[in-house]
Design a protein around this nucleic acid. Structure first.
Length: 478
RNA sequence: UCCCGAAUAGCUCAGUUGGUUAGAGCAUCUGACUGUUAAUCAGAGGGUCACAGGUUCAAGUCCUGUUUCGGGAGCCA
């Protein structure tokens, strides 16, 4: 019988003095052969277990090591020492699992994120990662809560797909054909007719196209699932496997799309602020400590909590691509030739340009709209100017692009024409085009990289630290 | 994939112009102490200096290649 235990978070939050409780968790430190800091993952706050001198034999005391798991029953009492208000006087203490102190890699001290990445299977047991993953959970939960409250249908779009029409990046092939000597066609190419699905298949790079099909029936849907990109990206903000949220809404134009995205982002941040205050404060403190090593001008201007409050209390800046280029062209940075890449209408803005807009010029999230059609995907709605499409990107300080979306091209002829221009196979996409053939409507949607919003909310700087087990080029441990 | 940097004890790091037996703090182990807060005090153990070549009387240190990691860029969410 284990579920009669009380979670440490609940114990510390409630008025439990005088009660006899059973707690279970893992030892963080054992001081003085008397004081156990016990953590069960419900909160970063450890529960102090007090063992009377002489209460346990030496052999048992030696087994209470960092990382060992315990079941403790005892009375909750007001703490005599400073540093905690209550503690549990152990009456019965069982070691559920030993932890060899010579081999257990976590010590009661600060570890580098690089080292912890190598032991990702144990890093949940640290304060930093405990906080990160509780915040991540809350954000994920808030995603569903938000869309549910808005009347959206959660649509599970397929993980395995056969279309690579979106062109969102390199794909991982899915196959059951043998790696050596696969069946070949006469011309020497692989014969995918022999493959499991009878055709070449891949892991999804986006659920958008299928999402649009759902929106054409339910009005508003969203997807929230794993997404795969086989790009050889080695950065702090890319993963080969990441989680993406993709709402798709019928009867929405670009303006409605932006309003929803902004409202959505604020909602999930607010949810984390309301439900993970302690964890966010811990992460804020962690950020301050980390930035102490940086020169003054490289440090964040706002603390983590202040940054999140600022985002909640201020509207995102909304500018067109054309205005963005003008701002860049008139910027001191441009005049002093600080930009490495050329700035002119028609360019795909580089990181340095986006960072300037977001971090130097506006100092807040910025939504850039109406990009040149030549740098955007075929499905984006063409504007009347003949040059731009109804796209929107939301750029966040420190992260860059956090949302990419658009109003979709609902006019069949214009869509087909654009597909031909961009060499998207019209025939294969017939199922997609049916939405435009049968009751087409203005609609819009966006994709939000979940790990990127987790980065933003936790103040972490490497995306590998906000997903449990990161998949990146040359790395698929655990 | 490109540019820059790094790799020395379990962790974080020092190691001088190439020169005896490669050091420190923390962790671990042993002992002491016992209301501690990353407990403290004393002692001990712990190293293929990433890997493979090369230069040299002599390489942790210099050179070449490889691998991995970190930061930046590209691709993007």
């Amino acid at each position: 019988m284990f579920n009669n235990r009380v979670k440490i978070k609940a114990l510390l939050a409630g008025d439990t003095i005088g009660q006899e409780v059973t707690v279970m968790g893992w030892v963080r430190t054992f001081r003085n052969n008397q004081f156990i800091a016990l953590n069960d993952g419900s909160t970063n706050n450890n529960l102090q277990i007090v063992v009377e001198l002489g209460q346990l034999d030496d052999a048992t005391l030696k087994r209470i090591t960092t990382g060992a798991s315990l079941r403790v029953t005892g009375e909750v009492v007001a703490s005599v020492g400073k540093g905690q208000t209550v503690e549990v006087k152990a009456k019965q203490l069982d070691i559920l699992g030993d932890s060899d102190a010579e081999k257990y890699p976590l010590q009661p001290k600060r570890h580098s994120p690089e080292f912890l990445r190598e032991i990702a299977h144990l890093r949940f047991r640290t304060n930093t990662f405990g906080a990160i993953f509780r915040v991540r959970h809350s954000l994920a939960f808030a995603v569903h809560k938000f869309f549910n409250e808005q009347g959206f249908v959660y649509l599970h779009t397929p993980i395995i797909t056969s279309s690579d029409a979106e062109g969102a990046g390199e794909m991982f092939r899915v196959t059951t054909l043998p790696a050596t000597n696969p069946p070949l066609n006469d011309d020497g190419s692989v014969n995918f007719k022999e493959d499991f699905f009878g055709k070449s298949t891949n892991l999804t790079v986006s659920g958008q196209l299928e999402g649009e099909l759902g929106a054409m029936a339910f009005s508003e849907i969203y997807t929230f699932g794993p997404t795969f990109r086989a790009e050889n990206s080695n950065t702090t903000r890319h993963l080969a496997e990441f989680w993406m949220i993709e709402p798709e809404m019928a009867f929405y134009d670009l303006e409605d799309n932006m309003d929803l995205a902004e409202k959505f982002i604020k909602y999930i941040i607010q949810y984390a602020m309301d439900h993970n205050r302690e964890d966010l404060e811990f992460l804020a403190q962690r950020l301050v400590e980390e930035e102490k090593q940086l020169p003054q001008d490289k440090r964040s201007e706002l603390g983590l909590i202040e940054k999140l409050e600022f985002v909640l209390n201020n509207g995102f800046e909304r500018i067109t691509y054309t205005e963005a280029i003008d701002i860049l062209l008139n910027s001191p940075a441009y005049k002093k030739k600080k930009f490495q890449y050329e700035v002119k209408w028609g360019i795909d803005m580089q990181s340095e340009h986006e960072r300037y807009l977001v971090e130097k010029h506006f100092k807040k999230p910025v939504i850039v709209t109406n990009y040149p059609k030549d740098i955007k995907s075929f499905y984006m709605r063409q504007n009347d100017d003949g040059k731009t499409v109804a796209a929107m990107d939301i750029l966040a300080p420190g992260i860059g692009e956090i949302v990419g979306g658009s109003q979709r091209e609902e006019r069949l002829e214009l869509l087909e024409q654009r597909m031909r221009e961009m060499h998207v196979p019209v025939e294969e996409m017939s199922w997609y085009l049916d939405t435009r053939r049968f009751g087409t409507v203005p609609h819009a949607g966006f994709g939000l990289g979940f790990e990127r919003i987790v980065l933003f909310v936790t103040g972490m700087t490497n995306i590998r630290d906000v997903i449990a087990f990161a998949r990146t080029p040359k790395n698929c441990e655990f």
